[in-house]
Design a protein around this nucleic acid. Structure first.
Lengths: 133, 133
DNA sequence: AATGTATGTTAGGTTTTCTAACATGGTATT
DNA sequence: AATACCATGTTAGAAAACCTAACATACATT
């Protein structure tokens, strides 16, 4: 798990902004979660919290929906794509252990404090992620 | 106003995640707004919406507070720093006209759709912004 | 002792999000 | 044509998050 992956998987956004960014309805987003296309984190009070990764995925889903693909198909496609990423990554990412929100935030704080380094880039990352420079 | 500036000024985060990212209390954040150190956007229902720029600024403020500088001083420092950015930017950014949320989101959508380009970078941007890759 | 500054705390109200249920317009199937 | 299924809309009631405004407090300055 690289630093950038951690950043991209930080649960930050409540559903409102995600709706606007993706132009999906709350109903749609929840339905996709119900069918396990995404798994946003939850706040203490049970509100969904989306990461940049989640938002990227939602935009992909939207695309696939537009192409007439149904839930099952999209689920498979997202799964396959994820496999590819893991494969091309070199390391099979062991069991991709879960980081707690607190761990993620601690990591984040460290990176903020240690400011000044230049940015590094994975060549192919999707959609939303690219927006934050 | 460059594309990246637009991205960095998108009002996305409600106060909750901002509190966690900055480790500031809601009271502090609102107090800084009251003293015009930041000017987060508002949702239709009057909730504060912070941009990456706002979060960066809050982290700077936190730093300056730690150095014992008071509101007035911080305000000046932020102002001066902003002047510098504008100056080194080349263009004095006319009157930096306000973009509506909708304009920003339209722009955002365009950038998302037109995927694939490589990332570009301004060499010196602060803090949080760097986290989103 | 009195004032000022930055922040904490509380109260009451509004917005946002939650789940669950029912409704609806297409498509596919019988 | 009737039925079933899929993706989404809509509604209701409850809970969480956020809002402003006011008062409280700790510390520094006068």
């Amino acid at each position: 798990m690289t630093g950038s992956n951690i950043r991209r998987s930080m649960p930050l956004f409540p559903i409102g902004p995600v709706m606007q960014l993706t132009e999906l309805s709350a109903r749609q987003i929840r339905y996709y979660e119900e069918h396990q296309l995404i798994s946003p984190a939850r706040s203490e009070g049970n509100r969904r919290l989306f990461s940049l990764n989640d938002i990227d995925k939602l935009l992909e889903i939207k695309d696939l929906i537009d192409q007439g693909i149904n839930m099952a198909g999209i689920k498979q496609l997202l799964f396959v794509k994820n496999q590819e990423v893991i494969a091309s990554d070199g390391k099979p990412q062991k069991s991709e252990r879960e980081l707690s929100n607190d761990e993620i935030r601690r990591h984040l704080r460290k990176e903020i404090v240690q400011a000044g380094r230049f940015n590094q880039h994975a060549a192919s990352q999707g959609n939303i992620t690219r927006l934050f420079h």
